[in-house]
Design a protein around this nucleic acid. Sequence first.
RNA 1: CGGGGUGUAGCGCAGCUUGGUAGCGCGUCUCGUUCGGGACGAGAAGGUCGAAGGUUCAAAUCCUUUCACCCCGACCA
Length: 641
Amino acid sequence: MQNQGTQGSSQPAISTVNRGTIQRWSRTLIPTSKEAPSDAESPSHRLLARGGYIRRVAAGVYDYLPLAWRVLKKVERIVRQEMDAAGSSELFMPVIVPHEFYAGTKRDEAYGPLLFSLQDRKGNPLHLGPTHEETITELAAGSVSSYKQLPLILYQIQTKFRDEARPRAGLLRCREFIMKDAYSFHMELEGAGGLNDAYDAMYRAYVNIFTRCGLDFTVVEAESGPIGGSASHEFMVNCDSGEDTILKCPASGYAANVEKCEIGERAAPSRGYFVGEPSGALEEVHTPGCPGIEDVVAFMKVKPQNMLKSVLFKVQSTPEQQAKYGDEYILAVVRGDHDVNEGKVRALSECAEIVLADPAEANAKGFAIGFVSPRAAVGKKGVLVLVDRDAAIGFDDATGKPRFWVTGGDRKDHHVKHFNWQRDLGKDPLAAHHQGPGSGGLRGEDCFLMVGDVRNALAGDPSPRAAGAKLVAQRGIEVGHIFKLGTKYSDAMGFAILDEHQQRRSVIMGCYGIGVSRTMAACVEMSHDENGIVWPLPIAPFHVIIVPMKGEPDSPAVRIATDLAEKLSAAGFDVLIDDRDERPGVKFKDADLIGVPIRLTLGDKALAEGSAEFKLRSDTQSKGELVKLESVVERCLAAAR
RNA sequence: CGGGGUGUAGCGCAGCUUGGUAGCGCGUCUCGUUCGGGACGAGAAGGUCGAAGGUUCAAAUCCUUUCACCCCGACCA
């Protein structure tokens, strides 16, 4: 799914219609430096700081200097063109969100300290918008009164505020950042474009935007998370230093966030789930102060894949769901080297609302948190046990031996080894276990087991989309995220209008975000070398940097540079003239650092034969080619194609 | 929120152990020599040492409090 989709509106990077800008280094502010601030670690942070793009004002708060602002404006321009082409309209909402807007959605509580809060002079609580679902729903509710006005897609590009617990990596995780946020409104009607149409249009627009920005990216299926809603995709810049892990199937192109990624059919054990003789007598081991897998692994010297990890959730379903199944707790059991996936636990159990059980409460119920084994569920009504396929093994097909398991001892500071599903569960797991959801008949009984997929996918797991293929992991930086929201916000804020049958219905919504400032940083992460940034042409602050060797204002080189700049500008190029009276080495180093894609050097030798030296920033090998002055524009246009 | 660390000139750092009123490199300014990959020489400007309180004749240095910032983790439309 890399760079997939249409190249939609294939705008050239260089507009020959509009004149480009010309700036002189000496007359703008580009404070480059040899050394980055000591707190800058990630490449984008270091290079943007060293290149004079950004300057830290406070934790996670940055000045955007002229170079950065030019890049951001170019990203924004592409965003606007594609958003407009996709049928949405730009507007601009306030940064300030009155506290009462959260009355219906309770997101002030959901956000908690992430929400910047302030008071006006009368003491009324206000917030700085972390995102604008409430504001726009409020706006739409007050101004959209007929289904005939739908569908409607609105967007803005604006500063967002989130008081992150830990801002990091410069622009990649900020407290104040620039975001494009879009919202769509729908009523599913015969023959009218619904949420799915808008979602698809936004998906295509995003593919176009990131493609045009010159980014190498992957679209992944994602969890919709606390913002709510049903479907969601993330747009990830492919980059090893990225914070997020994504999994891809090379055969089918399937890609997903680790939180969301499905796992293909895992071979069932030859003798069936849970079947197998004990590997030895059940033996209790004193493991003082070792509640975690790592602790036990180190203490008992066992491999994590030989451990069973049991995670207890408390069910907070609606009364109807509660009546249907009667579950109070869910015990998810996975192998020690695997992680329980809450979304998959929800899906398999059909319990929409679950939270990690409170340790104190669970202990009171007889679950020794940190030392829980599947046995803890035996004899307790209302406990659903979900066992991951890789954990429900009694006989090891690979070694031909009984499976050796270490698991909790169900009392503090104790574990057991030689756990065996059939022997130690105290009842026949085969009789109790059912595969898959929907078999709810026995739910609510004592220790009901289900086998299924309840863990995070890992590299090497079977692909869910192509038989025989294995998932591979890679890192990415999230620069875009689209959601189908459904009626979460319209319900919460009472946004309902009449449909053509005069039925009052909640308006259906979608929301679509792009981290504009993060996109700039992600691009640097993706595209740089040891000398500096290597901008893709479409979002480079300048397309061409002209470097006259002799920098005095009246030197012939500077005059020729000015002349060249005029011609390039007329052809649509943005040109930076390095007119500083600096030594050549300084200018070359700085040109590489700030990453302008095309460099034209005007030295004595080249000028003597009426030429300039042409060099691409991305081409680290060549020493540049001599191009006749009258052919320079043509040469640059060829490079821009 | 847990763990670790740092605050001294625009940037990078030393000085703190053993108190005596601040120094180095880069950058900046002036003059001269230089000029194709971060030049050289001479001179100059720039800091209430994060803040507050305390100990002391005397605090960048010791003590207390506090603030800010960074890294790892938890968390994260």
